[in-house]
Design a protein around this nucleic acid. Structure first.
Lengths: 130, 130
DNA sequence: ATAAGGATTCCATTGACTGGAAGGTCAAGG
DNA sequence: CCTTGACCTTCCAGTCAATGGAATCCTTAT
C-alpha cells in the first residue's frame, strides 16, 4: 500500500505519517521506486496511533503504548497506569478551562457591548495591575 | 525597575518578559548599563498580559486587547466580540476533552489492571484498525 | 507526447515560550 | 583591591507535533 491509501484509510495526513516514520513510530518497507510500502501491520499501528493521539496521549505515551501493544506478555496494569495518568491530565485541563470559562463568561455578560468605551472586561484585566 | 522586580511582581518569568519585548508587546526603556528599565505602565501592561494569557487569549488576541486597552475611544463591543470568540473556543476545547475523558475513563474502568496481558484499553485502541 | 496526480526529499515555520552558554554589571565582604 | 554571587545581557538551539512549500521524480491515462 502506498502512503496515499494509508492516509485515506487511517485519516492521518500523509505528512503526519512521514513524520511518524521520521521519529521511528512506524517503519514501512520501500518499493523499488523508492515509495513507502505499508504492510497491514503498519496500517493497524497507524490507526492505533491516530486513536491514541485523539485521546490525548502524547507521542511518547504512544511509543510506550505501541511497545506494550506489541509485547504480548505485558501486564494490563502497565497500560492502565499510563491511561490513568493521562486521564488525570485531562481532568486538570478541563478544570483549568472551566475556571477560565467561568471568569470570562462572567465578564462577557457584565460588558454592555455597545459604542461606549467603558468595558468591564478590560477593567478586570487591568485590575491585577493595580 | 529591573526585569527581576517586574518578574516577581507580575509572576511572569524574565525569559517571557524578554520574549514579549522581542515580539513588540512591551517596550521598556534602557538604563545606561544596558539593563531594561520598566516604567509603571510597562508593569501594568505585563500584568494585563499575564492575566489575559491565563484566560486563554492568544498572543495575537493580546496584541489586540492591549491596543484596545490603550485606545480610550474604543467601543466595548469590540472587546466583547473578542472575548466571546475566545469563550467559544474554550467551550469547544472543554467538549473535546470531555469526550476524551468519557472514552478513556470507560476503558480504564474496564481494564482489570493486573499481571495478565489481556487489556481492553489496547484492544479498543486496536479496534479501529480492523 | 504530455498532463495530471501522486510520490520523494529537504528546509523552514508555527506558538509561546524555555534552556543554556558566554559574558557584562553591581553591591557586599575580606 | 579582589572576589564572590546575584543579577543582567545577547544569541542560539530546542521544545511538541506537526504543517507548508519548493523542487524533483514516478506512474498512469489520454
Amino acid at each position: 500500500m502506498n502512503i496515499g491509501d494509508v492516509a485515506s484509510r487511517t485519516g492521518l495526513p500523509a505528512k503526519t505519517i512521514r513524520y511518524y516514520e521520521d521519529i521511528g513510530l512506524v517503519k514501512p518497507l520501500r518499493s523499488e521506486n523508492g515509495y513507502r510500502r505499508f504492510r497491514d501491520s503498519d496500517l493497524h499501528k497507524l490507526s492505533f496511533l491516530g486513536r491514541a493521539r485523539s485521546l490525548g496521549f502524547s507521542i511518547e505515551d504512544c511509543r510506550t503504548l505501541v511497545a506494550l501493544y506489541e509485547d504480548h506478555s505485558r501486564a494490563s496494569a502497565d497500560v492502565k497506569r499510563i491511561a490513568r495518568q493521562n486521564l488525570e491530565k485531562i481532568e486538570e485541563k478541563i478544570a483549568e478551562l472551566q475556571t477560565m470559562h467561568d471568569t470570562l463568561s462572567h465578564l462577557v455578560s457584565a460588558c454592555h457591548g455597545d459604542d461606549r468605551p467603558d468595558c468591564p472586561i478590560l477593567s478586570d484585566l487591568a485590575k491585577a495591575a493595580g
